[in-house]
Amino acid sequence: MSTVSVVIPCYKYGHFLADCVSSVLDEQDGVDVRVLIIDDASPDDSAKTALKLAAADSRIQVRVHESNKGHIATYNEGLLEWADGDYVALLSADDRLVPGALVRAADLLDAHPEAGFAYGRPLRFQHGGPLPKARTQGTGSVVYPGHWWLERRFREGTGCITSPEVVVRTSLQREVGGYDPELPHAGDIEMWMRLAARADVGYVRGADQAFYRVHGNNMSTTDFGGQLDDLRQRLVAFDSVLAKCADQLPQAEQLADTVHTRLARYALRRAYRAYDRGRTDIVPVDDLVAFAAECRPGFTSLPEYQALYRRRRIGAGLMPYLQPLVWSAVVDRGREWLWWQSWKRRGI
Rank of each mutant, 00 (worst) to 15 (best):
T3R: 06
T3C: 07
V6M: 04
V6Y: 04
P9L: 04
H15Q: 13
A18G: 07
A18P: 01
D19Q: 12
S23D: 04
D26A: 13
D29H: 12
D29M: 10
D32G: 04
R34A: 14
V35D: 03
V35S: 07
D45I: 09
T49I: 15
A50Y: 00
V62D: 05
V64L: 09
V64Y: 04
E66Y: 02
Y75R: 07
Y75V: 03
G78M: 06
G78S: 08
D84I: 11
D86I: 05
Y87P: 00
L90A: 00
D95V: 00
L97K: 03
V103Q: 14
V103S: 14
L109N: 02
A111N: 12
H112Y: 04
G116N: 00
A118L: 04
A118K: 01
Y119T: 11
H127D: 15
G128Y: 13
K133F: 08
K133N: 14
T136K: 10
G138E: 08
V142M: 13
Y144I: 03
Y144W: 15
Y144P: 03
P145D: 09
P145C: 07
G146C: 06
W149V: 02
F154S: 02
R155L: 11
E156V: 11
G157V: 04
R169Q: 07
S171D: 15
V176D: 03
G177S: 05
W192T: 05
A197T: 01
V201Q: 05
G206N: 05
D208R: 07
D208V: 10
Y212D: 14
Y212R: 10
H215W: 15
S220H: 11
D223A: 11
L242I: 01
Q251A: 15
L255F: 07
A256L: 05
T258F: 01
T261C: 06
Y272L: 08
D281P: 00
D286W: 14
V289L: 08
F291C: 03
F291K: 01
A293S: 14
E294I: 03
P303G: 11
Q306S: 13
R310T: 15
R310H: 14
R311H: 09
R312H: 10
M319N: 05
V326N: 05
V330N: 09
R333N: 09
Q341R: 14
S342N: 13
K344R: 14
R345P: 12
R346N: 08
